[in-house]
Design a protein around this nucleic acid. Sequence first.
DNA 1: TCTGGGGTCCTAGGACCC
DNA 2: TCTGGGGTCCTAGGACCC
Length: 451
Amino acid sequence: MKARKSSGLSLFLYKHNTLKNSKNISLKKIFALIDCNSFYASCEKVFSPRLENKPVVVLSNNDGCVISRSKEAKEIGIKMGEPAFHMTDIIEKNNVAVFSSNFALYGDMSNRVMEILNNFSSDIEIYSIDEAFLEISGMNIKDYEAYGHKIRNTVLQWTGIPVSVGISTTKTLAKVANHLAKKHDAFNGVMDLTNSNDFEKALKLTPVNDIWGIGWQFSKFLKEQNILNALDLSKMNDSWIRKHLHIVGLRTVEELRGKPCISMESNPPGKKGITHSRSFGTAVTEYSILEEAVSTFTSRCAEKLRKQNSYVTVITVFVMTNRFSDDPKYVNFKTLHITTPTNNTPELIEHAAKLLKLLFKKGYRYKKAGVMFTELIPATHEQLSFWDNIDRSKQKKIMPVLDRITATMGKDVVKYAIQGTHRRWKLRQEKLSKKFTTKWDELLEIDLDKI
DNA sequence: TCTGGGGTCCTAGGACCC
DNA sequence: TCTGGGGTCCTAGGACCC
């Protein structure tokens, strides 16, 4: 009886598994990762052809540290995240072109790239400003490498931005392929890693710190264990990985082995929190300036909030002095749970200003401030408070008008008085390029006589 | 003088409940 | 007094991504 039962079960499992396996083979997914090379630096190069083959770097807000480097800049040894003031020598010696970050330009260029990618698959996940996954299985593509080159050539021709393409059966392996395509000129920017016979070789060429999902801390730990590349890691047993790299690490390793665990997020859900914070160009001591900054940050958060059609219930304001200087230190934040969730700018500015009033202490040199919105809820879940005496129907009509003006005419064309008129807290942006693609009076001009 | 900004998910531990 | 197993919720902190 017992034997019959178990053989029945194993027969069932056998059938079930073979069925599942055959299904897997026919439905095997193929992911392509398209990643713009040195994105911000490449955007600057598009509009300054004289910089071709020259080292270019882009600095973070406030011209603080390097956040993007062209290939040439990497070659002369400029490091990611290096503070700008450490690099004066190397910049002068190599005639490096330095830019302040111009997110209006990069955002617009990103949209153009993504629109093009949309033509190459109906299933696209925009993963970051310069990266997207495409799901390209079931499209009857005979030659993935050729398809990758078609993508690459089209983006380059239509936008001037060079991209690398990695193609494989999981997102993590597509990342591996993309890295290899970037690193080794022989691939010419495209690597097809869909054949599992190539997995071992590719993994061996990938150091642990280059694996998507393995950061600085885990890399250090793995190297201490003499696990040096993706192949070494993929051979570790599951319980060991689970213990030391936790569930997220195990998922990464399964993906390296070719088992898809991370699916496409084609319609990402709204953000769970929205933050806007900035360091100031020069330290701020005056309350009114801080208030202007915090109001403006709040206004930005509220714009983002309305864009994803949410209301906020918890609002936090923080201020801090310079961590790096000898000035007296002060870091603090205050949080408010608001009774009636809202996305109305003037109301939120009022809350933020109250919080700032509680935070502000005279005599400190403030270097940074920020506003955070958390506990967001869909705008459809509105709950009216019994004590609420604000006319919300009127407000609801104003905000879309404000957003439309902002969208067509630019940020802060219309703003609230409390935000001030002079941006006295402004960033340092000494090397800002023009808004070539989003402002009429900053279009690129070409002198035909000189061509 | 000058050191970015904006996110996600998971885990461990404490408080509290039955 | 604090025995024992189970659960939930919350928070802080740590890891990661770009």
